[in-house]
Write a protein that binds this DNA or RNA. Structure first.
Length: 111
DNA sequence: TTTATGGCTGTCA
DNA sequence: ATGACAGCCATAA
């Protein structure tokens, strides 16, 4: 178990359907700005039967990040399209339309 | 302990 | 627009 990962997971869990957040955004909302890469680690470590909407996390430009398994991206895209998230010509998601904009900008830290 | 490698990102050429 | 680099730093070897 990892307290660090739990913080990231807590944020990912709040991403609404049909919306996506970037790794950096997740890290920041978790109160740990600059740890985008660690968010990637946290998601990579998720079990296949997780309930977390890990597929709603994309990179800063709205694209799916490459990983060890190339099919993982297709699956992620499938899950997103199933939630009505659209991809552009260059396989990018228009963040201005599908990017998650949390209200109150609450963070895990303080409050 | 040290090195290498990441599901990243902002900056600069 | 693309590509190289430098920070971030947890994990694995």
């Amino acid at each position: 178990m990892s307290a660090l990962y739990d913080r990231f997971y807590a944020v990912v869990r709040r991403i609404p359907r049909g919306r996506v957040a970037s790794y950096g955004q997740v890290a920041e909302l978790a109160g740990l700005p600059g740890r985008a890469r660690q968010v990637g680690y946290a998601l990579r470590a998720l079990p296949s039967d997780t309930v977390l909407p890990w597929h709603r996390v994309v990179d800063a430009r709205g694209r799916l990040s490459p990983r060890a398994d190339p099919d993982g991206i297709r699956y992620q895209r499938y899950l997103l399209e199933k939630e009505r998230v659209e991809f552009g010509e260059d396989d990018r998601i228009p963040l201005e339309r599908f990017g998650w904009r949390p209200r109150g900008a609450r963070r895990e830290a303080d409050t």
